[in-house]
Design a binder for these strands. Structure first.
Lengths: 114, 114
DNA sequence: GATAGCGCTATCCTTCAGGATAGTAATATG
DNA sequence: CATATTACTATCCTGAAGGATAGCGCTATC
């Protein structure tokens, strides 16, 4: 352990932020969970996550893909067929999601009880 | 396990969201980490988290207090003395913060390499 | 009497995530 | 020839988070 400069603090904080960013926003978590049940096509996700808009779904998928948490596979067909699928790296997120859920349940209990 | 209706999905998602909300935003995580080194006064936090504004610091502290993650203690003095301190419930967050950090570090490595 | 110190609150402003709506390419089907 | 289908993109708009700046109550010190 080194001294508590702003820099050493940030070194601890940045990876936490990175993780929070991957999960952040209104849709990424839901998206991930739906994809955890198996690969999905764009329109299928749009239905399952309704009322998400196409624009937003498209952006969120790109963000997850950029973070290598899902893959995008395009098949040569018309109308287009594109499949989204969780990567092993994406799977590894579920351990921490489950920890967040455990804390969240304890939290809810504490807050609710008087 | 029950069927995968929107409702059962949400039941899993909501506590995760609760946890993410407690940590969310630009400052709460930093605030928590600084408080993990010991109780702090308002102006002390303002300096340590500079360039946070008073307005924002005040709101963030209230949010953490409402979530019972910190306590606020007011001493009878002038100029005012107010002390903020992590609760045991707040301490319990650090386990999941550390998990987030671990995933974040692995993530950064994966994304950076090639 | 002016100024400083602490822990705020009030007002105004900017930024940005995400919603609403519409349009596109290329083919198949009626 | 019109229409449907799929996976998007383009444009415009709203609401909410958070920044900038100023002020307040009460006392102590110069």
């Amino acid at each position: 352990m080194s001294v508590r400069t702003k820099e050493t603090c940030n070194k601890h904080i940045i990876p936490v932020r990175d993780a929070l960013e991957v999960l952040g926003g209104r849709w990424k978590l839901q998206l991930l969970i739906h994809l955890s049940f198996g690969p999905r096509r764009f329109s299928q996700l749009a239905k399952e996550l309704s009322p998400i808009t196409d624009r937003t779904l498209s952006r969120e998928l790109k963000s997850l893909e950029a973070n290598k948490v899902i893959t995008r596979t395009e098949y040569d067909a018309f109308p287009p067929v594109v499949e989204y699928k969780i990567t092993p790296h994406g799977e590894s997120l579920f351990a921490v999601i489950s920890e967040l859920g455990n804390w969240g349940r304890a939290h809810r209990k504490l807050i609710m009880d008087k």
